[in-house]
Amino acid sequence: MTDIQRKTLVVDEGGTGDYRTLTDAVAACADTPNEPVRFYLKHGIYEERPFIELADYIIEGEYRNATVLTASVGGRDPWPGESKTGTFRSETLFLGGGRAVVRNLTVQNNAGDGAKAGQALAVYADASRVLMEDVNLYGNQDTLFTAPLPLKEREEHGFRGPRENTPRLDTVQYYKNCTIRGNIDFIFGGANAVFDRCRIEPWHHATGTCYITAPSTPAGKPGYLFVNCTVQGSAAPGSVYLGRPWRADAACYWLDCVLSDEVCTDGWDNWRDPENEKTARFGEYGSTGPGSAAQRAFGSVDNDTEANAQREMLARVRAEFGVE
C-alpha cells in the first residue's frame, strides 16, 4: 500500500482547520469520491459518527490518546419507525469504499454495557482494504466489526444497516500496534484480518465471562490471525475465551502471543453447539504467560505445519500493506 500524492484536509474542533468535524470534511469530498485524500485531525474530542465511502483515504490523528472520535449509540436504542437501532447501525465510525487507513487516534463507543445498551460498535470496517496503526478501539459488546456480514441472519432484521442487502465481498484488514477493548465478542465478523503486536483488553462483564473473538469466516477463507499480541485487561482470572464461532466455519489463530491469567483453560467455546467443533478452525501456537495451555478444548495446538502456514499468511499481508 505505497502512498501516493493526495490532498490533505485539516479537521480541528477549535476552528483553525479546514473543517470542524470529520463528517463535514468527508462531505466535502462527495463530488470527488475517487480522489485520494488525507484527513488530519487535530487533538480534541469529536462527538460525531462519520460515514465514509471513498476510494482511497487516510484518517490520521495528531495524538493517539488525545484525538478521539466518540459516540454513545447502542443496539437497543430506538430507531425511527423501528423498535431498535440494532448492531449494524450503532457504529461510531463507518469505513467503506476501497482503501482505508486509520492512524494515531482513538475511536470509542460509550453506550455502555451490552446488558443494557445492546451491541455498540466503535468501528464498522467494510472497506476492501483496511489498515489501522497505533489506534485505540474502545467499547463493550461488539467493539470492532470486520466485514463482511454472514450470508444469512439468524433473527429477522438482524442485519439492519448499510450492507444488509448488498453482496458479501471479501475484505483484507491489518491492525498493527493497536489496543482493542471490550467484553462480549468484541472482535467479530467475516474478514481476513491480521492483528500484529496488538494489545487486547478484555474488560469485566456482568455475566462474569468474556469472549474476545466471534469470527463468521466464510468457508475456505483465512479468518483471523493474532500474532505477537498481548491479552491483558481487567477481567477476572479464568473468565476469558479466545473466541467462539459466530458461524460454523469460523477461523481464528493465535501465534506467539502472551496470554494473561484472564484466559480460561478451555480457551475456546463452541457457542452451545458441539457440531461447531467439527468445522471451526481454531488454533494456537507458541503462547506464553499464565493463560497459555498445552491443550485446549478444541482447536489445534503446537502444530508446526499450521504455524508456518500462518507465518506465511502474515508475510503476505504485511507485503500487501507495505508494512515492515
Rank of each mutant, 00 (worst) to 15 (best):
P167I: 08
I180Q: 05
I184F: 02
R160V: 01
K176H: 07
G158F: 02
T166D: 04
R160N: 13
N165P: 00
I184V: 09
R168A: 06
I184L: 15
T166A: 15
T179A: 14
N165L: 08
D170A: 14
I184G: 03
D185W: 02
G182Q: 12
L169Y: 04
G182K: 14
T179W: 00
H157M: 10
E164S: 11
L169I: 10
I184K: 15
R160T: 08
F186I: 14
E164V: 06
Y175N: 04
N177F: 01
N177R: 15
N183K: 13
L169F: 01
C178N: 05
C178K: 10
R163V: 02
D185H: 10
T171V: 06
C178I: 03
P162C: 09
D170M: 11
G161R: 08
D185V: 09
I184H: 11
P162H: 09
L169S: 09
G182D: 05
C178W: 07
R168T: 09
E164I: 10
I184P: 00
H157R: 15
L169R: 15
P162F: 03
R160Y: 05
H157F: 07
P167T: 10
R168C: 05
D185L: 13
Q173A: 10
V172L: 15
D185E: 08
Y175H: 12
D185R: 15
T171F: 01
I180H: 02
D170H: 07
F159S: 09
R181K: 15
L169A: 09
K176Y: 02
E155I: 13
N177T: 02
E164D: 05
D170F: 01
G158H: 03
R181S: 11
T171C: 06
T179I: 07
I180Y: 01
Y174H: 13
H157I: 08
E164A: 15
Y174V: 10
T179M: 07
Q173E: 06
G158A: 14
N183L: 03
Y174G: 02
D185N: 14
T171H: 03
V172D: 08
N177L: 06
F159Y: 11
T166W: 01
R160P: 00
V172M: 12
H157S: 11
N183T: 12
N183A: 13
E164W: 00
N177D: 09
I184D: 11
G158M: 07
E164H: 03
I180M: 03
E156I: 04
P167C: 11
G182W: 07
F159A: 10
P167N: 08
D185A: 15
Y174L: 15
T179S: 14
Y174K: 14
L169W: 02
L169N: 13
D170C: 12
P167M: 09
V172F: 01
